[in-house]
């Protein structure tokens, strides 16, 4: 049927303009709550525009009128079909409830990240224990290439003074680097998890090699005092990045799910964002601690204080992730 186009436009224009005005208002203020009466009117205007678009179906594809109606309908459809609530972001609620709850909901991925890192640790320790020359390959940091005894002696004789006047910049570099590592561990989940597994395993290899080197040389106290203050948050943060990456990989592969890939990704996306944001927060803290606290050694700062501080951080973090937000999920 050929429609009377002039009459069609004349009759539709007031409704289209009303819908456009409502859409512009909604788009300019996404948080606004529409009253019921207005919602009903919005729905009715959407249906009218959709019906008008359907009547334009036989027309050539690029007419201004069709483009105009398609634009209106697609925008209105998006607003109508919204699936998530539009509650305002509440930082305290996010920290006290959303983050720990998201972590626990996806804890299996975290446990797998821990296992992969531990496997890397075992490999790194084994490699250095069986072949001393492996240290040069496994540890990419020049300050770890010497013997632990030399390092401890240097640190205790006041190397930390080298950082005087540079601590702020050092902390900034550490934060950037570690956040980048965590985000990369997460992003590589798109390689069906292979990249994430490699990052986690490799981090474990470095950690295991360093730990074996110092413990086997009898410097375990120095090792814990050096690593624990910042490692208590830095290592879990990188594991959280790995957890997010493994969640992406799981959603991509889709084991045990009947949903399509898009649905799976959409279901897991908010938790991934929450977890990686939590990791970034932890890494800001870790950068500050590593720069301003970890670089001081005995006799300036007793090892017991450093180890106690690191243990306290670890316990608090564990309690937070395990118990915060329970009952409010």
């Amino acid at each position: 049927m050929i429609i009377d186009l002039a009459r069609f436009v004349q009759a539709g224009r007031p409704h289209w303009e009303s819908l456009e005005q409502m859409l512009t208002r909604l788009e300019n203020d996404p948080q606004q709550q529409m009253p019921v009466a207005e919602s009903i009117r919005f729905h009715s205007l959407y249906q009218r525009a959709a019906a008008d678009l359907a009547r334009m179906e036989p027309f050539a594809s690029d007419s201004d009128l069709r483009t105009y109606l398609e634009n209106l309908v697609s925008r209105a459809y998006g607003e109508m079909q919204e699936r998530t609530s539009r509650g305002r972001f509440r930082p305290w609620h996010w920290l006290a409830v959303t983050l720990p709850v998201a972590f626990r909901r996806r804890v299996t991925a975290f446990q797998l990240a821990v296992l992969l890192t531990l496997a890397g640790c075992a490999f790194g320790a084994l490699a250095v224990s069986m072949d001393k020359e492996a240290k040069a390959v496994v540890l990419p940091f020049s300050h770890l290439q010497g013997t632990p005894a030399e390092r401890v002696s240097q640190e205790e004789s006041g190397r930390s003074k080298d950082l005087e006047g540079k601590k702020g910049n050092f902390a900034a570099q550490l934060m950037q680097n570690n956040i980048r590592v965590s985000i990369t561990a997460m992003a590589l989940g798109m390689t069906y998890g292979i990249g994430t597994i490699i990052v986690l395993f490799y981090n474990g290899v470095v950690l295991g090699a360093v730990a074996y080197d110092y413990i086997s040389s009898g410097f375990s106290t120095f090792l814990f005092a050096w690593l624990l203050p910042h490692g208590a948050t830095e290592i879990p943060a990188i594991l959280l990045g790995g957890q997010a990456g493994l969640l992406i990989a799981h959603a991509l592969i889709g084991w045990g799910s009947r949903d399509n890939r898009r649905e799976r990704m959409r279901a897991v996306a908010p938790d991934i964002v929450t977890i990686i944001s939590g990791a970034a927060l932890l890494l800001v803290w870790a950068g500050i601690v590593e720069s301003f606290f970890s670089q001081y050694h005995a006799p300036v700062l007793p090892y017991s204080v450093k180890i106690g501080f690191g243990m306290l951080e670890l316990i608090l973090l564990t309690l937070y992730l395990a118990f915060a937000g329970r009952g409010q999920e």
Binding site: G78, E82, R83, R180, I183, A187, R262, P270, I272, V273
Partner: peptide
């Protein structure tokens, strides 16, 4: 959104966080 739905902030954050890959 690839299905015409309203964009979530989490979608925009994820697509930008995955830039390293």
């Amino acid at each position: 959104d690839s299905q015409g739905l309203r964009l979530d902030a989490s979608q925009l954050i994820i697509r930008n966080l995955l830039r390293p890959a």
